[in-house]
């Protein structure tokens, strides 16, 4: 994968790549992609893709309100909070 492709992919993945990362991750990613190409040797014409091995249908449940006691605990675990709000770092 060339540097341009790598940088585009990193931007989509929301990861910053430094100089060292570009070389190291670039090599690791390219090596795996080349390996993925191996699958092209297989004829898969006409086959359905498997998304889940055993779950075949969508499952629905009744649309009813159920109590959950988790909300306060979840807010309590915020790194920083004000009342019942999450405080995020300063964005200037």
């Amino acid at each position: 994968m060339d540097i341009g492709e790598l940088e585009t992919t990193a931007a989509l993945a929301q990861i910053d790549l430094g100089e060292g990362d570009l070389a190291r991750l670039g090599d690791a990613v390219s090596q795996m992609l080349a390996y993925f190409e191996k699958m092209n040797a297989l004829d898969t014409e006409g086959l359905q893709p498997t998304t889940h091995a055993l779950v075949k249908d969508n499952r629905v449940r009744p649309d009813i309100v159920e109590p959950s006691a988790l909300a306060d605990d979840l807010v309590d675990r915020a790194p920083e909070r004000e009342d019942r709000f999450f405080v995020i770092p300063n964005v200037l």
Binding site: L33, F36, M39, N40, L42, T44, L47, Q48, P49, T50, T51, A53
Partner: peptide, 14 residues
């Protein structure tokens, strides 16, 4: 090229 292909290979493997 990759993801859909892999899911079809998954079918073959099963």
């Amino acid at each position: 090229q990759f993801y859909t292909k892999a899911q079809k290979v998954r079918t073959l493997i099963s």
